[in-house]
Amino acid sequence: MNINATLIGQAISFAIFVWFCMKYVWPPLTAAMEERQQQMSEGLANAEKAQEELDLAMSEVENQLKEAKLQSAALIDKANKRANQIVEDAKGIAIQEGDRLKQSAQADIEQEMNSAKEALRQQVAVLAVAGAEKILSSSVDQNAHSEMLNNLAAQL
């Protein structure tokens, strides 16, 4: 155990090793570690942001769903009203049409009745004349009495 130049040799190698470590070992290692730390914190921040965005999107979806429901309810309501309206309108038209048909039928009937009456009158006049002829034989002048009989028939 003697103190000798080994001391100096060790000091020199110590200095060289420390210099090498400081220059070529420490910086790349810590740089990689720091970069990883950065990436991790970024990743965590991103995850947090994504979660927030998801929450936001969820509430947005809920709002839109609610709005859509309201809109569809309004649409259904409107459609129901419109359907009722159409039914009401159709009913009115049908009633009108029915009335009109009834009226025209009535008019037809009346006209038919009148013409039948007219025909009957004619026939009654003829029958009356024929009857009278039979009763009176041929003593009655057909021409002389036809006007009287027509008048009689018109009174019927």
């Binding site: 080994t6 190698s13 470590c21 990689a32």
Partner: peptide, 30 residues
């Protein structure tokens, strides 16, 4: 005078240390 054994082993071990750490430092990824 030099203690060749002390110096040799100490430098050898220092080189081993730096070689290992340097090889990792070169390949270090994040």
């Amino acid at each position: 005078a030099l203690n060749v054994d002390s110096l040799g082993w100490s430098i050898g071990l220092g080189v081993v240390f730096l070689l290992i750490f340097r090889s990792v430092a070169v390949k270090a990824t994040s």
